[in-house]
């Protein structure tokens, strides 16, 4: 009974749950926007990376290796407190830019890996049969690409959600920040952080669930 009361005091009392929900909203917003822009930018990067035009190929290669090889927190701090410090951009915007840049590099690599797994002969066969380049991509490459890339893409999303937990460093009150504040105020860090972990876990499972559902729909 006492433990239930403690839980109530930590997570619900005095509108505490609303604050947590608000933090969760910020986390989801930043993740979703970064995923959208990251995927678009990442596809473009992959297009350059596997393309025939050498300068763009090198640019994409360098970009991917720098971004993938450095911690996202460093990039975030560098952009917010360095590059964009004088522009007066909102921290949320800088966070979305950072995480989009980061996700883009990962998406570009996962797309390239999936492309490499495809059989080149199929596209060649389609071209011989009179399909245009675009048609061959749309009807032969893309459906297989989606199927191969999907599981890796799913784990990229889950990773992205967890990476966003560092935005507290740039004055954004996200889920992690809210949980830390609660832990300090209620003096119960163990329970509070376990609670926060469960919320992140639920979010990840939601993503898994969505992918699973779409898989099953395709199967029918």
């Amino acid at each position: 009974m006492e433990f239930t009361e403690l839980l109530y005091k930590i997570f619900l009392k005095d509108g505490g749950w609303l604050t947590i929900l608000n933090g969760l909203r910020v986390t989801v917003e930043i993740s979703a926007l970064s995923l959208l822009f990251g995927t678009l930018f990442g596809s473009l990067l992959c297009f350059f990376r596997v393309g025939k035009f050498t300068p763009l190929k090198i640019v994409a290669q360098v970009y991917i290796s720098i971004i993938r090889g450095s911690p996202v927190l460093m990039l975030l701090m560098l952009l917010f407190y360095g590059v964009f410090a004088r522009q007066g951009l909102s921290p949320e915007l800088v966070a979305v830019v950072t995480f989009s840049m980061h996700t883009a590099a990962h998406v570009a690599e996962l797309l390239r890996a999936s492309l490499m797994a495809l059989d080149v002969g199929q596209v060649e066969a389609a071209r011989t049969l009179g399909f245009s380049k675009l048609q061959a991509f749309k009807l032969v490459t893309l459906p297989q690409l989606v199927r191969i890339a999907k599981p890796v893409y799913q784990s990229t999303i889950v990773n992205l959600i967890q990476w966003t937990s560092v935005v507290g460093y740039v004055t954004i009150t996200d889920l992690t920040r809210v949980i830390n504040n609660i832990a300090s105020r209620t003096m119960q860090p163990m329970i509070t952080i376990t609670g926060g972990m469960i919320i992140y876990l639920a979010l990840s499972y939601l993503v898994y669930g969505l992918f699973n559902w779409s898989d099953r729909r395709r199967g029918q």
Partner: peptide, 18 residues
């Protein structure tokens, strides 16, 4: 009032963000 992680306070102060 801006909520910030304690590790980033010095950087935020130096760069005019707070």
């Amino acid at each position: 009032l801006v909520n910030i992680d304690s590790g980033a306070r010095a950087a935020a102060l130096a760069s005019n963000q707070i």
